[in-house]
Structures are given as C-alpha cells and as structure tokens.
Design a binder for these strands. Structure first.
Lengths: 113, 113
DNA sequence: CAAACATATTCCGTTATCGGCATATGTCAA
DNA sequence: TTGACATATGCCGATAACGGAATATGTTTG
C-alpha cells in the first residue's frame, strides 16, 4: 500500500515544495497560469497539474477570464493545519523552562530577550 | 522523478496521517515504542519506521531505557511550519471583509465575538 | 472557418512510499 | 550462556507521485 492520495487532504497537498511555491506566488493576488509559469520557471503542464491538486483540496479557486484562467488563493482552507499545529504550539511554549530548548531557541533565533 | 524524500523536511514527514497520530499520542509524554503500538493499533515495524522518519526530521527524539526506547516529542521543530502558515493567516484575516469568507467563518466556527 | 493563443489532459518512465513479513540487533533475567 | 523481551532493519510487492513530451480542449481574432 502506497502513500495515501495527495488529492485528499491539505497536509499532503502542501507537502510538495512546488505547490507551496505556487501558493506563495498567489499571495500577491489572482494570477493566470502563464504568470505562475514564468514566476516559478516551471513547465506549463507541471503548473496546471499542481493547480489541479490544489484546487481539489480547495486551497485555490479558479475563475475564467476569456481564454485564461485566473487562480486565486483560498487561505481559509489552511485553517485545519493551523488548528492541528496549535496543539503543539502550546507544547513548545510549555517547555521553555527546559534548558535544552532555551538554548536551541537562542541558537536558532540569535536573540530574544 | 517522484515526490521529494519524506525524510528531508517536516512538511513531508507530517503529510502521513499515521505519523501525525504518533505525534498526537506523544503529546501525553515520553513513551516506549510498545505503548505507541498498542495506542494506535499499528504493527511494531510500522511504528518503528515512522519513528525513524520523525526522528530524521527532528520531530521526535529518542532515549534508551534498558531494552526499551523512549520517544519524546520535539515540538520546536514544528516552528518552520508555523512560520510558513503565519503568512496565510494574515491573508485569511485580511479577507474577512469579503462576504463569502465571512459566511464560511460563521458556518465553521458557530460564533466569534 | 482557420490560425494563434492559453490551459488542461494523457501517456510514459523513473522513483519513492507504505505495509507486511521475516529476521537481525540489543538488553535483561535466570 | 540461554532464552525471553523490545525494537530496528531488510526485503518484497503494490501503488502512486512526479516531470516530460505530445496532444486535446477551449477561446479569441482575422
């Protein structure tokens, strides 16, 4: 049995770096496929396929404009991930008393009062 | 070319539902492999393999205790995901003026303020 | 209608994943 | 040391992901 389908949930959809790149570039606003292609230097079919996956999980939506299709970010769909993460956020805050973690924080962030 | 290696980054590591389950069960605290096996009704090798992946991306750490190995959550490693998400969090808040999103919020959350 | 343009889809080869099963490694107890 | 116990690893088959290239679909313009 292989990995569960990538089209079924947000976690899998976002596991791909290229798809995260597409979401990032769509933060600037609605864009046609061609703009994404040039922005990210990916092939047009590659972009279309990733957009399909992102559409299927609802992370982007699509609107026709003449012969182009304008894709738009649907950030609300990221909420499930945020909620899942929130549990751990608390966990990492609770452990700030541990010396290890404190040192890690200092190392990673340079400074933090 | 297939999907980029699951062992290389946190996004891929948590794309697997079983691995998220393991992290969830470790929130209760340090546990030996056997406890995870019974908690989640997975096979022991299956759990060990997922723990390997989680260890490689630093999401869990391991400590020997006699003939067992106690695994512990390392929630700080989820920070990169949180940071990536934060950008979109802003985006979904900024769009609250759009009726669509507002309705979605109401539907999903029931109430808010 | 034909040709140019924008995007989607299909087919293909390569590669990685996942789970199962068997087995190796390591540790304690008698 | 021998055997029970706990965990890790290796091998396997099935599945599906990814990118590339070619092509199909759909739209505008002449």
């Amino acid at each position: 049995m292989a990995r569960s389908s990538t089209t079924s949930d947000v976690f899998n959809a976002i596991a791909e770096a290229h798809r995260r790149d597409i979401l990032d570039t769509l933060m600037a606003g609605e864009k046609p496929v061609g703009a994404i292609v040039t922005d990210l230097s990916m092939s047009q079919p590659q972009v279309s396929k990733h957009l399909r996956v992102l559409t299927e999980v609802g992370l982007v939506s699509c609107r026709a404009d003449g012969r182009r299709r304008l894709y738009r970010l649907e950030p609300a769909r990221l909420r499930p991930m945020h909620d899942w993460l929130a549990k751990y956020e608390q966990a990492w805050n609770n452990r700030l008393d541990r010396v290890e973690d404190y040192l890690k924080e200092l190392q990673q962030q340079g400074e933090q009062q």
